[in-house]
């Protein structure tokens, strides 16, 4: 039972991390990226390369992954999305563009690292005895890092100057730029942060999941389901929704059948969209 709960919390915090990225992007630019899951996958592969192949210390590997993923996300927004919007493209085309990017990322990963599942060496190589059940420390690490990054992002958005600027730009672009806030910059940073969060999630998920090119697609979509359940565009909603989805999935797999857990996860998404499209945190999604 405890293993089940920890598994659910672990999975849920990963969904939460990736889902916060969706929220950031949506708040900052009103757009949606479907490449988040593949950012997670690229992050996991990069982390594995730094940590396993180059034998760098884990903290340094994580930091490098964060920097690289931030740049990738920032470039994606600055180069592709902005020029697409400058052409007067509709939002659907931006979504299509991110779908294309996600396919490109998967192929790049397949080209660079091959299509086999790879082993991510354990980060904390010991188990903890928790209320009579042994739990691998790596699983708790996922939870801890997840919570840490959620708190960091919260403080960044609420307490720092740039975070405040980002929130202002999200609320009213024109007013924010009139006050001297660099709005395009805040959008780029939001996309960068989103892919950074996904990259972090990939690195910490690596040891318990294995690293393979298709690992991101499903996680990305479930994180989206979580984000919608919580209220799309709301960072805290994404966390709550992600955890909720993690629990649903773990308990479905345990009590019903692990074959159907994806079915239930997406079923929840559809039910939420039908009956309470604004999610738990009441975000506006209807037109």
């Amino acid at each position: 039972m405890l293993t089940l709960i920890i598994g659910a919390l672990m999975q849920g915090s990963v969904y939460g991390l990736v889902g916060m990225g969706y929220g950031l992007i949506y708040k900052a630019s009103g757009l949606m990226s479907l490449a988040q899951g593949d950012m997670l996958m690229i992050g996991a592969f990069l982390g594995m390369t730094f940590y396993k192949t180059l034998h760098l210390p884990f903290a340094l590997s994580l930091l490098l992954v964060m920097v690289i993923m931030f740049t990738v996300g920032w470039l994606l927004e600055r180069v592709l999305v902005t020029s697409l919007l400058a052409k007067g493209a509709q939002q659907v085309y931006v979504i299509l563009c991110t779908i294309a990017i996600s396919m490109v990322l998967q192929n790049v990963a397949m080209f660079a690292w091959g299509s086999n599942t790879m082993q991510f060496p354990p980060i904390l190589n010991f188990s903890i005895n928790l209320f009579g059940t042994t739990v691998e420390a790596d699983r708790l690490l996922v939870l801890a890092v997840g919570i840490l990054f959620m708190l960091l992002l919260h403080f960044f958005m609420q307490k720092t100057r740039f975070g405040t600027a980002m929130r202002a730009a999200a609320q009213d672009e024109t007013a924010a730029s009139a006050l001297g806030i660099n709005v395009p910059m805040t959008k780029g940073v939001a996309w960068g942060l989103a892919s950074m969060l996904a990259g972090v999630a990939g690195v910490i998920l690596g040891p318990s999941y294995g690293v393979y090119t298709a690992m991101g697609a499903l996680i990305g979509q479930k994180a989206f389901a979580g984000a919608v359940t919580g209220g799309y565009g709301n960072m805290y909603g994404a966390i709550v929704g992600g955890l909720f989805l993690g629990f649903v999935e773990a308990f479905c797999a345990f009590y019903i059948s692990s074959l159907y857990k994806d079915f239930f996860a997406f079923g929840i998404l559809i039910i939420v969209m039908i009956f309470m499209p604004n999610g738990l945190f009441k975000e506006q999604v209807m037109e």
Binding site: M32, I95, F266, I270, V285, M286, E287
Partner: peptide, 20 residues
């Protein structure tokens, strides 16, 4: 009733549900 991004995701979710 949904706006565009949610529509994309609803349809993706439907496709995945059928597949699963």
């Amino acid at each position: 009733k949904l706006v565009k991004h949610f529509l994309s995701l609803l349809t993706i979710a439907f496709g995945l549900m059928v597949y699963t």
